[in-house]
Amino acid sequence: MDAAAKKENAIEIHNLVVSFGSHRVLTDVDMQVRCGETTVILGGSGCGKSTLLRHIIGLRKPQGGRILVKNRDITTMDEDQMSTLLRKVGVVFQSSALFNSLTIGDNVALPLREHTRLEESTIQIMTRIKLDMVGLSGFEHYMPSELSGGMKKRAAFARAISMDPEILFCDEPSAGLDPIVAAGLDELIFKLKKALKMTIVVVTHEMESMYKIADRVVMLHEGKVIFSGPPEEFRVCEHPRVRQFVERRADHYGEDEIGRYARALTSES
């Protein structure tokens, strides 16, 4: 194999099984995320992308399988070990998840204040630098409720990178945002990877954004990984579900019923 294969894996997932009660969401997930690369996890709504992310950052324990982050199995870690590991991880949640009772500046400064013994003046400077990086300079004193959706997302990025993490997770960064703002966020992810050499995992279902940022693509379907590889291969992959995703074709449900209903309506009149 080539040089890329020799790269170390930041995350390895083996035979991951996750269920909620009797509802099995992930049946058998195997995937790797390589250090310094941007991996995009694709999949339809409700196929378990956010659930997968939650397990990688240890918010829930899986029903089976192993998750190695930086070669250490997080499924057997206790809370202290997990807490230490998480200092090197940043997460941008689907709904931004800024602390609504704190200003933007305090949101970004919180991890620094709690996890480091830096001087307050240093923390202020670092906070300002992170906000500059996401294009929110001068917004330190705003409350989250005073920002637009796109600005909240960017503030969430600033908070996620405040501790200079080695791995950054983003759950649907551009969901619910207009195309210009969404493109801006893709740009931001690209810059973060280039400038800070972060390993980045992005969950999305937007193909355009995927082509722009991805080094590798992992596609989830029905609780399994059905494709894993570089984006060029994804484009030509023959798997029917992948083709459907690439060509943006709908599932066929409800059409017969709609047709029948329409015919019934017209025949009645």
Binding site: L59, M82, T84, F93, Q94, A97, F99, N100, P111, E114
Partner: peptide, 16 residues
């Protein structure tokens, strides 16, 4: 905070 994923955000930063 629960509904807005803020609790999970706290946990993801290693806070209890």
């Amino acid at each position: 905070m629960k509904v807005g994923e803020e609790i999970e955000a706290l946990q993801s930063m290693g806070f209890n």
